[in-house]
Design a protein around this nucleic acid. Structure first.
Lengths: 215, 215, 215, 215
DNA sequence: AATGAATGAGACTTCATTCAT
DNA sequence: TATGAATGAAGTCTCATTCAT
């Protein structure tokens, strides 16, 4: 009857509705968080944007923190996927795309910035999840670097340092790009700064692959 | 010998005390902001740490925001100075030190992260000062890059992109380093992570100068 | 019989409770404002007297100012109604009652005094509502004066001046009466001063209708 | 040596300077109070306007309240003088001037309004002085009314009621006039409303002397 | 399961008053 | 006597979270 015979057992209609509701809430939360930052985002606005009541929020997430972590996890998933998709045999091309993609969406840039900020601020016991999300990113990157070195397309640099540097650049650049967007007065989408994402991705990749030194 | 005759007129005792008090407050604010982030920092704790009453805070700064901007300005000043000190004839050495210095102090790393975050969140009219501070950094960097290219020590890359990339890396790395510090459980000073700042600075500089490609 | 079919739609129980709560809060606010004046009235006491938390106040009114304006509007409404009820064919009788009614309740007297005071102090842009309330009063009075002149029961005085004078007397007398009440030591209700409101209303009306001059 | 041989003993230079300072402060306080109202007037601004430090204020007056009472007393003195100057043989003329004078200065109008307001709010034990000032006014008026009745220029109305009504009108009209000034957009001096003080004084006096009734 | 009114802790900020200089 | 920095109590307002409906 249902279209899915694999595990877990086919979700009932109620379960499907609940999942959709949860997704709506996460989507709304991502938007509000990215726009205002964590502390200035209000559960009231998230609820409004998800078209549910504030009370309902708490049927799906234990707290504002939990809501935030839900957003962070989804974000990290998509970024880990992107890193996993890098082709070590064509670093230039795939890195260019990776960078460009990370610079394209203002919402993603802002979310990344926020995760980094909160990860630091909330290092108090209970909420290491953002840390975990970051760690997953770096680990995924390090794995690719090792592969690239093994494949002979990358110099035998320290893989951990290289992975960290690349992620730092992604993060730092996302931040800087976001700031320039704001500075250039187009804080709202669409992002039409002096440097279009593609060119920027190319130039940054060039620096990373070929270095800055003359000769 | 006594009241010197040069400008500005010798500060009276009262003026000296006021300046010292102001410095105390800024110092306390920097500490509290870096530890908790802007929103979770309370004027109460800043006052306590500066050993003054909350009211006194407002004799020196108009608002919590103004206090924050005071910290941001001082921070940007020191970073601009550091960039201005880069020797274009010995990029490797001076960049290594620049990076290493930026990674050394946890408080500086955290402050930088916070400024970036707030700069994005507070792009509302009145408080562009953090933006300005960031802009100063990038401009100072771009000037050095142009010099280095003219001096023939750097490839003729796009100076604006290079300046942005370098700053992005500084920022991103400060963040990442800070996060790893936290991950490795030594969130408090001193910072004794797997990668000591000097080695890290060297490795990052190497990647930036020489690139990642196996040529 | 049950949910009536006329407009507006029958208020739900929740809506009815909300309206009642709003009324409770306004009532409490009127009491506290009249007792302490605007600036010395605290949201804490208003909340306590309305038997709600301070936070709840802000679910019904945006600010202390808004609360005050709610009280002012209700007050102006009742006074405008009273003026509209004056019978121009029996000025003596209806004016006597109008005056007497305005003198009777200490709370009303004090509120009036406060509105006048705040109207002056808060003439800053946003809050002209108190001004508006006063203007409504004077306009209503002027209309009655014109009618009375047309009906031949009043001398052809300048209607605007007469309206202003009458309202000035109402206000001024409310104030003076309130002050004497206080002076005579019965600041709390009930008001049993030397001059009972009815006699006072009569005497004042006599002066206004017949003047002070001999002959 | 000094120019004054009467009691009290000739003031020394120091005493004269102190008196002048006191007068400066009172003048500044009157201005600030009338502009902002009691609660919104700050000792800081009073001090600035009097060109002394805040601390100095407290060498001349015990508290903000005392400062206010100083202003109130001076104000009542001048008004009592004006009432004492009314010529019972020429009520029309002298009342017209009395009214007109009270309407002319915005600062006086606002101060009067404030005194009335504070007199009510501060009826708590300690500060009956404003009450006393008001009482002096009414008593002075009542004395004049009795004289006028004895002189046969006034109907034998109840002198207490008449005195109260007249003062009420003065107060109420001062308030109303002040409000209209504000309403007509010229809250700052000079006062150029639709009704110039002289005409207004005349019209009000006419109503008071001759009444409103057609007969 | 959904609602949204109620809660109350806690934040920032103001300002009359004091007191060491 | 004058100064003005320091004080700290107190006030308004916000918002995550709860719970009766």
């Amino acid at each position: 009857m249902t279209q899915n015979s694999s595990f877990p057992p086919a979700p009932s209609r109620r379960e499907r509705r609940a999942a959709a509701r949860r997704a709506d809430i996460l989507e709304a939360a991502a938007g509000v968080f990215s726009q205002y930052g964590y502390e200035n985002a209000t559960t009231r606005e998230i609820a409004e944007r998800a078209d549910v009541s504030e009370g309902t929020l708490y049927n799906y997430f234990d707290s504002k923190q939990a809501l935030f972590l839900g957003v962070a996890d989804a974000f990290a998933d998509s970024l880990v996927d992107a890193i996993a998709g890098v082709d070590v045999d064509d670093l230039e091309h795939s890195m260019t795309h990776l960078f460009a993609d990370r610079f394209r969406s203002g919402r993603e840039r802002r979310l990344l910035m926020m995760f980094l900020y909160k990860a630091r601020v909330d290092e108090n016991g209970e909420q290491r999840s953002v840390h975990n999300a970051i760690s997953r990113l770096v680990a995924a990157t390090e794995a690719r670097v090792r592969e690239a070195i093994d494949a002979g397309t990358m110099r035998p640099v320290n893989p951990a340092v290289a992975a960290a540097t690349l992620n730092a650049a992604i993060m730092g650049f996302a931040i800087l790009y976001e700031l320039s967007s704001a500075i250039h007065g187009d804080s709202a989408e669409p992002d039409n700064t002096a440097f279009p994402p593609e060119l920027l991705g190319e130039a940054v990749t060039d620096i990373f692959l070929n270095g800055l030194s003359e000769n």
